[in-house]
Design a protein around this nucleic acid. Structure first.
Length: 103
DNA sequence: TCCCCGGCTTGAG
DNA sequence: CCTCAAGCCGGGG
């Protein structure tokens, strides 16, 4: 299997995360048939073109938090996109388990 | 080829 | 709950 296949598999999984739900990098990797490759998911999402229609913002870390620096622009955009779909954050900026996606 | 660095995870303390 | 170490793997120097 070539690298582009893994790439495509990951993008496919991300595209299936329903609005109002979130999945972790590790979860996406596993569903894509690539257990243990969470960082690969991060690398791919980091390289997405700006106008990509993929719901990259529905991917968070295992703690249920956004993986960008809290004071960054990216953090703000991701949080806003999620809240616009009804996802709620706690005071600690973590997302409750009920918002996690389970296929 | 080695080394370092990532939108990470998990298991031990 | 926090910090550390180890694992993971592709990209770039």
């Amino acid at each position: 299997m070539g690298a582009s296949d893994k790439h495509a598999a990951i993008l496919l999984v991300v595209s299936k995360i329903p609005a109002g739900r979130v999945a972790s990098y590790g979860q996406v990797a596993e569903l894509a048939g690539l257990p243990g490759r969470a960082r690969m998911v991060g690398q791919i999402l980091a390289n997405l073109p700006a106008r990509s229609k993929l719901p990259w913002f529905r991917v968070v870390n295992a703690r249920g938090a956004i993986s960008f620096a809290p004071d960054s622009e990216s953090f703000a955009r991701q949080r806003q996109a999620l809240e616009a779909e009804g996802v709620e954050f706690s005071a600690r900026c973590t997302i409750a388990a009920r918002f996690r996606w389970t296929p």
